[in-house]
């Protein structure tokens, strides 16, 4: 196990999936090599001097060297030149990352506590799953409905903050079909680390099929609920195996008696679940923090129905 992680570590970077990622990695290798050479030189010289000039007697006489203009010039000038090379190369790559091709396919992205919505030009909204065609530049127009988030795809080597009240953008062109991880990299509260999504890079035909909504059809309410449970990140706070994460578990929860922080009680039924999903702050179960955001306006009636069906299905 340990060795597998070292093997993965030896490449240092996640798989490359775009041309930009390749540019970044070339720059990275260059930086790594000069860093390594510089560090080894400094550290080796230091360790060598410790042995070579170790103290022999307490009355050692040492050389009185106050400075040396040539040496000092060299070790200021050479680093400066190297830094300027890093800067110029970094500039080139930065420009590449920031400049989207004119004909990019545009997708709107909305970040919220704690998940991502992707909206396509035909009005289709896909939570947590971003489908994009391979070999076509895609431009994401992103905004947030609450606090600042940041959209990061390690395999593409790109990242952009998603700020409420304005649009920021990010572009990429995927070269290899596959599924790529998305992280939120701007701290946004309780489930910051659960604010994940996936990029599905698919062929043109599959993408068209997805756009026409076929991929999402033919799910029973329970299946759709199970999918929403993951894509809407319910799973970061509510377990389905009876364990306590942040909120109460869903296992066997339907039909249970709940006691609230204000002392009142209620039985978990459809109406209670609906209210708790859409506006969790109304009734807080005793012993749990009031950290769930409202889903009013985020989930459709259809979604809520599916989630309730899913929760009902979780019985031992």
């Amino acid at each position: 196990m340990l060795w597998s992680s070292f093997a993965q570590a030896s490449t240092f970077m996640p798989p490359q999936a775009t041309k930009v990622a390749e540019s970044v990695d070339n720059l990275y290798i260059f930086l790594l090599v000069i860093s390594l050479i510089a560090s080894v030189l400094v550290i080796a010289a230091m360790i060598y001097f410790v042995f070579k000039y170790r103290r022999k007697t307490d009355n050692d006489k040492t050389a009185y060297i106050t400075h040396n203009v040539t040496a000092e010039f060299l070790w200021s000038f050479i680093p400066l030149v190297l830094f300027m090379v890093c800067f110029a190369w970094g500039w080139k790559v930065y420009h590449e990352i920031r400049t989207a091709p004119e004909d990019s396919y545009e997708i709107y992205v909305r970040g919220y506590k704690w998940g991502w919505d992707f909206e396509y030009s035909n009005g289709l909204v896909s939570p947590a799953e971003l489908y994009v065609p391979v070999g076509k530049p895609v431009k994401l127009l992103m905004t947030s409905s609450d606090v600042i988030h940041s959209f990061f795809i390690p395999s593409f080597r790109i990242k952009q903050d998603v700020v409420p009240g304005r649009y920021s953008s990010l572009w990429f062109e995927v070269e290899k079909p596959g599924v790529y991880q998305v992280f939120c990299t701007e701290y946004c509260g309780t489930s910051h680390s659960g604010m994940l999504a996936k990029v599905h890079a698919v062929s043109e035909e599959e993408f068209d099929a997805f756009l026409s909504g076929k991929a999402l059809e033919a799910l029973s309410p329970v299946e759709l609920g199970a999918k929403l449970y993951k894509t809407r990140n319910c799973n970061t706070c509510h377990s389905i195996d009876g364990s306590k994460i942040i909120g109460p578990t869903f296992m066997n929860s339907f039909g249970m008696q709940r006691e609230f922080t204000d002392g009142s009680t209620a039985v978990v039924d459809e109406n209670y679940l609906r209210e708790s999903i859409l506006n969790a702050q109304k009734k807080i179960v005793k012993g749990y923090p009031p950290s769930m955001p409202p889903y009013q306006g985020v989930l459709s009636d259809e979604d809520v129905k599916a989630l309730i069906a899913y929760i009902k299905s979780l019985k031992e």
Partner: peptide, 28 residues
């Protein structure tokens, strides 16, 4: 000496982070 050792590593990685195109990946 420990300082010089770790500070050198901290320093060169600082240059990596100062390189704009590289920092986009490393940021946060």
């Amino acid at each position: 000496m420990g300082f010089i050792f770790v500070f050198t590593i901290g320093g060169v990685t600082g240059i990596m982070l100062a390189t704009a195109g590289m920092d986009v990946h490393f940021h946060d």
